[in-house]
Design a protein around this nucleic acid. Sequence first.
DNA 1: CTGTTAGCGCCTTCAG
DNA 2: CTGAAGGCGCTAACAG
Lengths: 333, 333
Amino acid sequence: MATMNDVAKAAGVSTSTVSYVLSGKRTISQETREQVLAAIRKLDYSPHSGARSLASSRSNVLGLMVPLRADVNVSVIMQFVAGVVTTARDYNQDVLLLTQDDTDGIHRVTSQSIVDGLLMMDIEARDPRIPQLAKLRKPAVLIGFPDDPQGLSCVDLDFAAASRTAVRHLSELGHRSIGFIGSPQASLERHATYADRARKGFEDACQAAGIAADPRACEPTSAALADALDAMFSRQEPPTALVVHNEGLLPLLREALALRGLQIPKDVSVVAIAPEDAAMAAAQPWTAVSIPAHDIGRAAVEMVMDRLNSDKPVEIRLIVPSLVQRETSAARS
Amino acid sequence: MATMNDVAKAAGVSTSTVSYVLSGKRTISQETREQVLAAIRKLDYSPHSGARSLASSRSNVLGLMVPLRADVNVSVIMQFVAGVVTTARDYNQDVLLLTQDDTDGIHRVTSQSIVDGLLMMDIEARDPRIPQLAKLRKPAVLIGFPDDPQGLSCVDLDFAAASRTAVRHLSELGHRSIGFIGSPQASLERHATYADRARKGFEDACQAAGIAADPRACEPTSAALADALDAMFSRQEPPTALVVHNEGLLPLLREALALRGLQIPKDVSVVAIAPEDAAMAAAQPWTAVSIPAHDIGRAAVEMVMDRLNSDKPVEIRLIVPSLVQRETSAARS
DNA sequence: CTGTTAGCGCCTTCAG
DNA sequence: CTGAAGGCGCTAACAG
């Protein structure tokens, strides 16, 4: 492996000149620069990240803590991750993967200066990691919106507003009784903030509009869906519309309703809260409030980098949801 | 941040002693060791990873290249990843996440000594990354089994044997016409090795046993499944059994068959090639050849670490599949 | 069993 | 606009 010294010799300059050519932190004459670049190419030189991080106290690595839980939807996670990794590369950062159950991962990667900053997914209302992160001298961004961010940056879709938007849409179509099929019980019990907020938003919106609400948790399985639907549609005032915040159920829903003699949207209107591609995947695309997972991932990286490179203040960014009407919602018949 | 020097002073020893206490690379008296450990605790010392990697040319980081493609099943990926990350931690390594489309990611993390070794997922038959990896001086492990590994380590489930096992099971139950519902067309076209091998194994096994075979590619959507089933069951010799190598379709299959008046296993036996948990998720658990994604991930890490720490030879490890009969396969009626 | 010391490769201040 | 040189924190000979 060639070192910076080798390059300097080959180019007939000093190492500092090579360093500055690379970092652009001072002006170098066109001529010298080209010599240096030529030498770099010739020797196939790459800087040694350890040496760089030792000298500059920057590792150019961001830590991303990902949930590998059964109760969170994997495809949404992947989209977040994709957004994070892609954006990180734009900032010349790499991404280190941490898992939720790596309990002292935060301390390890941070105290050893393995990472410059942290991104935390799947935040809970009173997430025990928050106080830990708040003490660090490295920036951290929460993807989620806890009860008390303790001075940390947060970014997420405004899930409460997402539900409200869905309810408003259905209300405008004349629906007066709406069911909500949400995240699995486990997500609610640990107060994953997206699950809590979506459900709360739904209840509040229905109450405000004087609409009968029937929110239910649901595992992403046929059996659980069947139970939920049976319960909903055997009530005195069965729903004429559903809000579904559970991507895993979308592929199952149409047939489950069909088995009960219900057609979409003739008998039941449905609004999904789901990533765009999940909503578009079906033969009959879902009317949906989209979860811009990729964009949220991007925003999260931008926010850490902002705090790393400048003294931009901490911010809490709630992304405003938007609903696209497609083929699964219609006026109440 | 305390440095090793601070610790040494506090403990009244030299830095090398501290270093050796930490690395265990030479014997230290009980007494000194305890002094050092006490000082470490008191100062809340952590070694600086950059400095360490500079001095030892080991970063303690493994690179993992993950496909973020639409045509690969995300939940299987997550299980691989979980296996990799967990095992990496057992070896005191962290995991850096690279994506397939980060075209020069391999060169970057490798030439800058960001990682000590690489794990590549979703290998294709003639994967263009293989020659690139073969040239490196860092170990790499392929998760998959390409036409020519070029001296690299490989590990994967023996998908051909998985299909053979499934066919044998069905054959023993008396089935003489078997359909195969496999990976999406896109996976086959780029010759993802699991897709190719599973399909090939199916065809070969059927031919050898004189069984009518009907292999089809299928997207993980209701519509695609409907097409595939319609085509299969409108043939002269409709299948009495199916082998399904596509986790995304499992939640949809029962109802799709029911719509056509077919019950499992009375009218159609089904063997899934899928992760254990996917097979067990259904109300009626699937007879399945399991894809031990987590174990494969673990094995992959063990193999890089072997090559990193010792001079164990390169190996190609094909994991022998095993079938568990559950409720979806029965004797041909 | 322990200490001394020379790097590892890069960044950056200080001189020029 | 460029060079010289110290130091970042740790490892691993070498010396005792």
